[in-house]
Amino acid sequence: MWRKEESKTQAVPEISTKAVNSTITPPAPAAPLHEKPTPPFAARTEARISQGIKIRGEITGSDDLFVDGEVEGKLALDSASVTIGPNGRVKADVVAREVIVRGCVEGKVNAHERVQVWGTGQVHGEIQTLTLVIEEGAVLRGKVEAGKPAEKGGNAFAAAPAVAEETSSSANVPAIPAVN
């Protein structure tokens, strides 16, 4: 009796996971043997610099990094995500795939994909990224560059419409909601 109940409760999540997988994701094609499958985001390992730890120098690597301590120097994690925790103090240039700022950063932030600055975040320095997300209350002091690089060399206004009325269609574009 007792053993039967225990086995039932253990089995539930296993079954539901299978069901979710079968309905949402199509069966993945078999990966070639020479290709190393990329782990899902949740499975990525994350290095951690906890509160109270101070590091001076250059940090490089390919794993995600969470900084809740103090770092001075350089953070170069090209393919990884760097999170500056609420207690984190970074006085360094940061290069990463994604940078999430909840603490304080002093230096250049260069993220290939995205920079998120939370309401508690402060960036004193330049930000260069594709997508920038800023929450209310965030402090940004310095130059910000966001978006895809502009096309160079072309006549920028060659394709401008000749009739003013045509632009009124752009007024139908819905307003982008403010970040709360």
Binding site: K148, P149, A150, E151, G154, A156, F157, A158, A159, A160, P161, A164, E166, T167, S170, A171
Partner: peptide, 14 residues
């Protein structure tokens, strides 16, 4: 509105 009209058709601009 006029500013955006002048930028219309620009494609990727800065």
């Amino acid at each position: 509105k006029e500013f955006l009209w002048n930028l219309d058709g620009l494609g990727r601009g800065a």
